[in-house]
Design a protein around this nucleic acid. Structure first.
Lengths: 143, 143
DNA sequence: ATAGAACCTATAGTTACTATAGGTTCAAGG
DNA sequence: CCTTGAACCTATAGTAACTATAGGTTCTAT
């Protein structure tokens, strides 16, 4: 397979990622050390593009670097024990579901505020969003 | 108005916030420099509790420190309008919805993988997780 | 051949805290 | 009144996950 070759700058452009971030991902072990030119410049190809895309998207979804490493194991070790792969995928799916639930609650809270705040031209004194965030929550009576 | 007085520890407890975090909020200008005792200990009262509550809740909703400062300006300076607050909340809700959508896609991919694994000894080369995250946002085919 | 864009490494800065060190003050018990 | 120890004080360092800078080298196109 003679893939098209990319410089780190081209890779970065293709993945909407900064060059420094690619360096960083290499340093922390998310990206492999690629081949180099005579002069020491990194040479990338399509699999690197895909991998970096995967990393970026996973990060955007709120996965931590260490979690992304876990996810990448699915790719790096395709001959994994089937049961093990299944277990990891299921565990990850549970984590994802929890995140979805959290965000859903958050969105509801925001939306509720917005719908209560009907008028745009009221002074903030009357703004229910401000009120909602400002009011002391009832569970902190204890000394 | 002789409000009840609180030490920083009591304030922290009331707002489920750490003492160090209160220090930090003071340093970055979210919390005001409160009056002190002879010996230099900070003295807080109810308005501080409310303000810190507002800050914590806003942070939990995903607003950044700078955004919280914006929101607090609405409170500190009365010449603002409800519409400005509403707009920020709506923007935040849109961001959250995008995250939810992304996570939903990832969860589907993970679940799909789990069912693949259930089938038995299928290789994971054709990984649905990679596909899910390597979406067709790749408008970057051309150089 | 040479200009300058892009690359290299290493280090420091960013955000939003959290933890630590080393010292001072406060409140309670003797 | 004096002591003890919890809680407070300031200042600094550490964390995650980048991002930016400095100072130097290589690649590429004229």
């Amino acid at each position: 397979m003679n893939y098209e070759k990319y410089s780190i700058g081209q890779l970065a452009k293709k993945t909407a990622c900064k060059v420094e971030t690619v360096h960083y991902y290499e340093k922390v072990g998310l990206m492999p050390e690629p081949p180099r030119t005579e002069g020491g410049h990194r040479i990338y190809s399509l699999p690197h593009v895909k991998r970096l895309n995967f990393i970026r998207r996973s990060r955007d979804l709120g996965f931590r670097i260490e979690q992304v490493k876990e996810l990448l194991k699915f790719i790096d070790e395709p001959n994994h024990y089937c049961g093990e792969v299944k277990e990891m995928a299921m565990q990850q799916a549970r984590v994802v579901q929890e995140k979805i639930d959290d965000l859903q609650r958050l969105k509801s809270a925001l939306n509720e505020m917005v719908t209560h705040c009907t008028a745009g031209d009221k002074p903030v004194d009357d703004c229910p969003i401000v009120d909602a965030l400002y009011t002391e929550n009832s569970t902190n009576k204890a000394t």
